[in-house]
Design a protein around this nucleic acid. Structure first.
Lengths: 340, 340
DNA sequence: TTGTAGGCGTTATCAA
DNA sequence: TTGATAACGCCTACAA
């Protein structure tokens, strides 16, 4: 058990076995290098014998490029984010990058993992964290790592953001609710620190204010089904129940619907209008048919990838890019009723 | 634009600025190295000035260990797999590893990405692909990369598997169905190539055969909600509708329930018993309350991590490990009815 | 076309 | 305690 297993064969090993120089091996694997067919075959034969695969690690040292992009994410329980993660992964792989997946407990910040990512010399970072502090952003700038912040509008010279128009979307929902006869409004929020949730609330308030309405029932939850369920239970426990409920995401809206129907025997949409945000797959399921805002995950990912391409090409800061993608309302059954 | 930006400061840069040797810098960052406090401070000051972070890349060359573990996955649309991915990520990070996330289109095999993973010198691979061919497994063995196959029972000297007891679980469901008055049975499968789906079908058939039943309505789907929905539509289109439906996973079961209820006006469980597999979060949602088998994702991940630890410690093949975790039935409303 | 030599940023070994 | 030096595996001149 003494011999320390050397797991991978090196180009030197192959060269020795083939009786050629190490450079010859290197050239064999470099597309478009000048090498004779005879030499190529000799090398490939030896390589096959040793199961040789060229290592990318030395190249990282030489080029200062790892082709590694880190994706930092804090909770894949939300199907919107698992879909985003999948799209990023596919897009980055197509662009020749590899994905370093980093999980950070939701509610925590990037800070703790930045040094580790820097140690791995990642080319860029995608943050799909609902919380990205200004301090984190500044530290990232110190390391000169290009960052795209997904759905959190922090930015500086090195940190760009791709968000969706939370305020405008939420604001427009008020018109729909009024047209459908909504009169008493309620909002179930995500975690207090989430900018996305805060913006959706702000937009909703703006829309209400435009109609002189300042009465809004509020409950704080956590973006999860259970949280939405519990929040709806408490919001509808007393008198003066809302008849038009907006939830900061679909998962909570679905939880709320189940609570309203099963605990309080309320009908959706007849008794209560409900809308969410994201358009996750289950929003379209037959038991819910939830009205919601389509956050165009594919488009947002594409925008983020475009920023990363620019960053990779420029070898420098990409400037204070902040992209906002519109959110599209898709009305399903949870708001389909005739005005009273 | 000529100067090729050298992005990260190196230990040599720090040493020069601090007026010390490069080894001194190295020692400063090595826990438990003998170095004077004075030297340490000098180095740290220079490092801070240059925003220096030691690189892990050269260490990989020296030690032949990257601390990188690849997770190959083919479709995070299934919440069971996104939860598994999250657990793996957390577990590996806690063990000091980093996760290289690789997406392979579901239905495809590992083969195409193996060389790339070998190039990154990953320490191990976790495959959460529903399809892992024997050929892939053999190629992996050639590269001497330890692999854990999740839910696909392929194995060899280098490839271990962690599966759940699909056959036993599916078989036991027959008893429940008979006790609940089920008489005409139906099964909606995943993709034909999926071993998990095949085992669940085999177990179901075994259970039926034990009671002399060989009549089973079948529909092939794809593990998705839409697939289950469509399969149920066709299975229940004719006469002789089943009254006890088993779906190879929860997502399809939920799709089937929506189809039965909304298109055919059937009641679950009164008219049709339904059960799924996985126990994804939405199985517990109020609108479905789906009876299903808990695939203990946490435990399966823990077993897989344990195998990886052994592999890391042994520097060699881990042997033909095949772990089978039991699946636990959790009965909810979709099978709760008195026998007819 | 082929081989030799230097360097990338670390760690480990050995002298000083 | 420090510094010089040799790896690690590859790529890129440059020389043959």
């Amino acid at each position: 058990m003494t011999a320390r297993a050397k797991k991978y064969a090196s180009s030197t090993d192959v060269a020795r076995l083939a009786g050629v120089s190490q450079s010859a091996v290197s050239r064999t694997y470099k597309p478009g290098a000048k090498i004779s067919e005879e030499m190529r075959q000799k090398v490939l034969a030896a390589a096959a014998q040793l199961d040789y695969r060229p290592s990318l690690i030395p190249r990282i040292m030489l080029t200062h490029k790892s082709n590694l992009v880190a994706i930092v994410i804090g909770g894949m329980y939300n199907p919107f984010y698992s879909a985003v993660l999948e799209r990023f992964t596919v897009g980055l792989q197509e662009a020749g990058n590899q994905v370093l997946l980093v999980h950070v407990d939701s509610g925590h910040s990037l800070d703790a993992v930045i040094p580790k990512l820097a140690s791995y010399r990642v080319d860029a970072i995608v943050s799909a964290l609902s919380i990205l502090s200004k301090q984190s952003a500044d530290e990232l700038a110190r390391f000169k790592i290009p960052v795209v912040s997904f759905n959190t509008p922090v930015r500086n010279e090195w940190v760009s953001s791709v968000c969706c128009d939370n305020v405008g979307a939420a604001r427009s929902l008020v018109e729909l609710y009024l047209a459908r006869g909504g009169r008493r409004f309620g909002f179930i929020s995500g975690p207090p620190a989430s900018p996305a949730s805060a913006e959706r609330l702000a937009g909703f308030r703006l829309g209400l204010a435009a109609h002189g309405i300042d009465n809004l029932a509020m409950a704080v939850a956590d973006f999860r089904y259970e949280g939405g369920h519990a929040a709806a239970l408490s919001m509808f426990a007393g008198p003066d129940r809302p008849d038009a409920l907006f939830c900061a995401n679909d998962l909570m809206a679905i939880g709320a619907i189940d609570a309203l129907r099963r605990t309080y025997g309320l009908r959706v949409p007849e008794d209560v209008l409900v809308a969410g945000f994201d358009d996750i797959p289950s929003a379209a399921w037959g038991a819910y048919e939830l009205t919601t805002f389509v956050q165009d995950g594919q488009r947002m990912v594409d925008e983020a990838l475009a920023i990363l391409r620019v960053a990779a090409a420029s070898h420098g800061p990409v400037g204070e890019v902040a992209i906002e993608v519109p959110a599209r309302l898709i009305e399903r059954q949870t708001t389909r009723r005739q005005p009273i």
